[in-house]
C-alpha cells in the first residue's frame, strides 16, 4: 500500500442554472472583463488515501464521488491523476 493524493473538481451539471457562476460573471463584466462568456462555481476537494497503486486510488475516489462527494442529480465531477503523497 502507498499513499496517494487526488484532487477532485465538482461543478454544477451543464445546462442547469448556476446562479453563483452567473453572479461572478456579471461581477467580472463590471470589472471590465467583458470577454468572459461563462463562469461556473464548484468545489475543489483534495484527499489523501492509501491504495495499491494510482489506478486503484482513482477508482476508489470515483466511487466516493458517486456515493457522496458529488450529487448525481445536479453535479459533474472530474478526478485528477493520483500522485504519490
Amino acid at each position: 500500500m502507498a499513499r496517494f493524493r487526488i484532487a477532485v473538481h465538482i461543478t454544477p451539471r451543464k445546462g442547469l442554472l448556476d446562479p453563483q457562476g452567473n453572479a461572478v460573471k456579471d461581477a467580472l463584466h463590471t470589472l471590465g472583463f467583458k470577454a468572459v462568456r461563462n463562469v461556473h462555481v464548484g468545489r475543489y476537494i483534495v484527499l489523501e488515501t492509501e491504495a495499491y497503486d494510482a489506478i486503484a486510488a482513482e477508482e476508489t475516489v470515483t466511487d466516493m464521488c458517486r456515493k457522496l462527494l458529488a450529487n448525481p442529480v445536479t453535479e459533474d465531477f472530474e478526478i485528477e491523476s493520483a500522485v504519490p503523497a
Binding site: P12, L17, P19, Q20, A23, N71, V73, T74
Partner: peptide
C-alpha cells in the same frame, strides 16, 4: 425522494 434542492436562483 427524487431530485435535489439547489441554491436559490436569486442567491
Amino acid at each position: 425522494l427524487p431530485g435535489a434542492l439547489m441554491r436559490n436562483a436569486n442567491l
